[in-house]
């Protein structure tokens, strides 16, 4: 073998090795739970495209709808969200990234949906929006969209610490007929395959999310119900204390991730 051939062959082997190593590095990155990685990275490019493309993303319909609701007056006071908060792109920027949070007045955790309904009933004197209704999801998606790209950063100091612990407990607790804890899949087996899907780390930075199998938007709590259902466990109520604590824990667990809503998930 001439030296050029030898070098050529060597380079080919080297390049192949580089490709293999890169692929392995990516694999390791997905499977390692050492740092948070958005569910976005666990999807195939065809679904990523659905999320990235402003035109294709079906979640953007909810955002558009949310803007209409933001401007719409409701209730006996004749107020809209806009009446007090003005331009949401200014007033609501970064807000969703800090929810759920501990509310001093209520002495409990409150999430974005809870806050929306509180505002509606207390200030607008309007009917609360039904959780998981199209309107609620649209408004929540619109508000969260104002934090697109912001770093998720919830306050877990003080009173919130107790809820954080409760949430962690729920997350680590085995449950259901399948006797599985959230952590067994999303901490210990993230990156591995579950049928055709790659198991993600189970972060909540994409919610409200458009899920292809739901063919609609869904909140974090709907996803928790779905997960409970998937391990044949008893789902809790939307907006229940357990889910609020879990939501706080998951938001804290994914701290540092960017808000992606409206994300698209399979």
């Amino acid at each position: 073998m001439s030296s050029t051939h030898f070098i050529g062959a060597f380079l080919a082997v080297e390049m192949l090795a580089a490709v293999v190593l890169t692929a392995h590095a990516q694999e390791r990155q997905l499977t390692s739970g050492a740092f948070p990685l958005s569910g976005y990275h666990y999807m195939g490019t065809q679904i990523q495209e659905l999320q990235d493309d402003e035109f294709l993303n079906p979640g953007r319909f909810a955002v558009d709808h949310g803007l209409e609701l933001w401007l719409e007056s409701d209730g006996s006071e004749g107020l809209s969200c806009h009446s007090c908060h003005g331009d949401a792109s200014v007033s609501m920027s970064g807000v969703a990234a800090r929810y759920p949070q501990f509310d001093e007045n209520r002495r409990s955790l409150v999430n974005l949906e809870g806050r929306i309904n509180e505002m509606r009933t207390e200030f607008m004197k309007a009917e609360p929006l039904e959780l998981e209704s199209e309107e609620m999801l649209a408004l929540a998606a619109y508000l969260t969209f104002q934090s697109l790209g912001e770093v998720m950063d919830v306050d877990v100091s003080g009173e919130a610490a107790r809820y954080l612990e409760e949430g962690r407990e729920y997350y680590m607790q085995r449950r259901g007929q399948l006797d599985l804890a959230c952590s067994q899949c999303h901490d210990e087996r993230a990156g591995m395959m579950l049928r055709g899907d790659r198991i993600s780390q189970g972060h909540v930075n994409g919610f409200p999310v458009y899920r292809l199998i739901w063919r609609s938007m869904g909140s974090r709590h709907r996803m928790f119900r779905w997960c409970n259902w998937a391990v044949r466990a008893e789902p809790r109520e939307l907006g229940s204390d357990e889910y609020l604590s879990l939501e706080l824990y998951l938001a804290w667990r994914g701290r540092g991730l960017n808000i992606e809503s409206p994300a698209v998930r399979p």
Partner: peptide, 8 residues
């Protein structure tokens, strides 16, 4: 939407 436990 009313009973959002669903799956597949």
């Amino acid at each position: 939407a009313k009973q959002p436990v669903d799956g597949g």
